[in-house]
Amino acid sequence: MRYLTTDLTGEEVLTGQTGALGLIALNRPRVINSLSREMIRQIETALDTFETDPSIAAVLVTGEGERGFCAGGDIRMLYESGRAGSPDAQEFLREEYRLNGRIGRYPKPYVVIMDGITMGGGVGLSGHASHRIATDTTKLAMPETGIGFFPDVGATWLLSHAPGELGTYMGLTGEPIGPADAIAAGFADVFVPAANLVSLAERLAAIPAGVDAQAVTDLIANFAAKAPEGQFAANRALIDRCFAFDSVEQILAALEAEDSDFAAKAKATMLTKSPTSLKVTLALLRAGRTSPDLETCLAREFSATAQTLKTPDFYEGIRAAIIDKDRNPQWSPATLDAVGPDIVEAFFAPHPQPLFG
C-alpha cells in the first residue's frame, strides 16, 4: 500500500486491514496493474470478507507503482483466447463485469485513489465507487475504439450519464482526460493533491468502526482542493454542439464545420478509430441513456462482447497496439459508410449465457 506503512498479504492483489479500513492494492506495477482473471477473483474475495466483517467500516483501493492505478484488463489474453476460440475471454469478461456491478452497489464506503493511468478496466474498478479521488497525475480514458472494441466495464452507463455530450466525446475519441475533466464528466468526485494523499490515507486508516458514508465524504473533503483547469471548461459548448447527433457521420461533419483546433483534433482522432467500433459505441451510448441502471448496461455490453470476439477489427486493433505495435491497424470495413445497420445490430443480439440471472 503505497500511501500507508502497513503489512499486506498477497501477490497480484495485496489485502489487509488497518483500524476499521479494509485495504486492497493492485500489485502488478510492471504492467500498470492490468487485471488478470485471478486478480478479479482476489478482489471479489476481499470484498466478501470486508462486507461481512463488522470491524470494517470502509474499503480503500489503490494501485502499486508510480505509473498508474490500473491500465485495463488483460488484452493479450482476450486476443489469444478469442483467436483460439476458447471460453477464457468470455469468462474473464463475465467475472469482470459482475465485479463492476457489485462495486456499484457495495454497501460500505468504497474509496479509490485514481492516481496516474486509469483506463479501461481501471475505470470499471473506480468509476462505480462511492468515493472517487482524482490526483495531480490522473490520466483517465476509455480508449477502446482504437482497438476495435467499445467502452465496457459499465462505461456505457457512466458515459451516457455524463453532463451534456462529454461522455459521447470521451467514448468516441478515447482521448485521456485529467482530474478536472474527470470530475466534470462524473468519473471522479474530488481532487486531492499528491502532497495530501499520505495524510488522507492515514486519516482514513484511523476512522472508527461505526463510521458512515457521509463521514468518509467529509473526511476526504478536508484534503480536497480545486483541480487545475482541464479542456472541458473551454470547449464544453463545442462538445455539446458537435456530439449531440445520433450518427457518427453527422458528428464528424459538425466537427469539420468548426473553426477550432480542438474540433480538428477530435475529428482527426476519430478517423483513426475502427469505423465499426465508432458506430457500435455511439449506439451503445444512446441505449445507455434510457437504461434504468448500471446492471442493464453491463448486461448489454456483455452481449456485445460475443459479437466483438467474432469481429476482425478487435484482433487487428490489438495486433497493431499490443502485439506488433506498428500502430497501423487496417480496419475492416475500412470506412464508415460500409458499416451498415445490420453490422451494428449484431452487437445487440442477446447473449446465449446472460451476465445476470
Rank of each mutant, 00 (worst) to 15 (best):
P193N: 08
D53C: 13
P54E: 09
T269K: 04
T62H: 01
A321T: 11
L172C: 05
T5W: 10
T137I: 05
D212K: 09
M114S: 02
S130L: 04
S55N: 15
T135M: 07
F245G: 11
A244L: 00
P87T: 03
L159E: 03
N196T: 14
T272R: 06
T137V: 09
R203G: 09
S332W: 08
P312C: 12
A257E: 15
T145D: 02
P54K: 02
H351E: 03
V198A: 13
D115P: 04
L35G: 05
A334W: 10
Y3D: 03
T138W: 13
E256M: 06
T52G: 10
I75G: 08
P352K: 09
R2Y: 07
I251V: 14
L284C: 04
N222R: 12
A287H: 15
P193I: 04
P109K: 01
A71C: 11
I40G: 01
Y97K: 15
R241G: 01
R2E: 10
L238P: 05
A71Y: 06
R41S: 14
L8Y: 01
F149E: 07
S199Q: 14
A129N: 04
A287E: 15
G171S: 03
A225G: 12
L172F: 05
D324S: 13
L336W: 06
S332L: 12
T305P: 02
L23M: 12
E249H: 04
A201L: 05
A184W: 04
Q330S: 14
A338R: 09
P54Q: 05
I43Q: 05
T217V: 13
L60H: 07
L35H: 09
E256L: 09
D189Y: 08
G317I: 06
L284V: 07
V216Y: 02
V13S: 04
V280C: 06
C70V: 00
E258Q: 12
R300P: 06
I113E: 00
A266R: 03
N196C: 12
A213T: 13
P193F: 02
G357R: 01
L204T: 10
F191A: 08
V280F: 05
A244F: 03
G121W: 00
E258A: 08
A206W: 06
A71D: 07
A233W: 07
G340E: 14
G82N: 07
G148K: 07
A233N: 12
I322C: 11
I117P: 02
Y3G: 04
G154A: 06
P87Q: 11
A215H: 14
W331P: 04
